[in-house]
């Protein structure tokens, strides 16, 4: 069963192509890392898969449903997104933010019931932020906020979770904590996860499949050991690295070699 599939999906922002003829799919239950330098199209690809940007050419399917004419409500019941930057304008409490994840299941006349409340509580417990529920979102640390946004995404009860550089602004302990959480969600709930990753070593440690983008095209797709080679890193990132084997997990481990 495929979680999503893109067929020759092309997108341009008006000043040149952001993505060219991307054909990519993921099975349900896969954990896919997107890597590539800044501007290579990782975020744009995530937006295309989430359906908020329409492909200029080609098609994107979620679970067999074409996104071209799909309604947001239907799409957001299948796919949830944890964006890179997140700002709340008013003093919302954590629980209220997580409840926003239930929006696709609400209507004008159906307010949040005790069932919705239970789903919200469950999502917060999964992420481990139960004790933050009454705190103001904007007063939390970056790591805590990231978990709240993840809980909101989980409250959507998605089958596909997209994350845009989820560890970028976090300290190393929070990075590991968040990725462990994603791994657990993937294993225990069968959630398909696609994340744009910035740190190649962390990507190699946590993602069984890495898709490499360069200038809007997929240039490599496979297990970390096949993708993360010195020649590939030199070609895609223009950086010189030595690749070693991680001492405990045996996945590739990169060390930057200054030119």
């Amino acid at each position: 069963m495929l979680a999503f599939r893109t067929e020759d999906a092309t997108f341009s922002y008006g000043n040149g192509f952001a993505l060219r003829q991307i054909s990519l799919s993921a099975n349900e239950g896969e954990m896919v890392g997107l890597i590539g330098p800044n501007g290579s199209g990782k975020s744009t690809l995530l937006r295309l898969i989430s359906g908020i940007l329409p492909a200029s050419e080609g098609e994107v399917y979620l679970d067999g449903l074409s996104l071209r004419r799909a309604r947001r409500k239907a799409v957001s019941r299948m796919v949830a997104v944890v964006p890179q930057q997140f700002q709340m304008p008013f003093a919302f409490r954590v629980e209220e933010v997580v409840m926003l994840g239930r929006t696709p299941f609400l209507g004008a006349f159906s307010d949040s019931s005790s069932r919705e409340q239970a789903i919200v509580t469950q999502a917060m417990d999964w992420v481990g932020i139960g004790e933050l529920r009454g705190r103001f979102f904007n007063e939390l640390s970056g790591g805590e906020r990231q978990k709240v946004v993840l809980a909101m995404a989980l409250a959507q009860q998605p089958r596909l979770l997209l994350l845009d550089e989820p560890t970028t602004h976090l300290d190393i302990n929070h990075q590991v904590e968040l990725l462990e959480l994603l791994k657990r969600l993937n294993r225990e709930q069968g959630l398909t996860i696609v994340a744009a990753m910035h740190d190649l070593n962390l990507a190699a440690l946590y993602f069984g499949r890495l898709v490499t983008l360069k200038a809007g095209r997929i240039v490599a797709d496979g297990v970390p050991g096949a993708v993360l080679t010195p020649s590939m890193i030199a070609e895609v990132f223009g950086a010189c690295v030595q690749v070693q084997s991680h001492p405990t997990t045996q996945v590739p481990f990169m060390i930057v070699v200054p030119p």
């Binding site: 908020i52 947001r72 964006p83 997140f86 709340m88 008013f90 209220e96 926003l100 929006t103």
Partner: peptide, 17 residues
């Protein structure tokens, strides 16, 4: 409430922005 997430965030939770 959903618009508090911003226009993109609102779209992610099912709003036809």
């Amino acid at each position: 409430n959903a618009f508090a997430l911003g226009e993109e965030g609102a779209a992610y939770v099912g709003i036809e922005v």
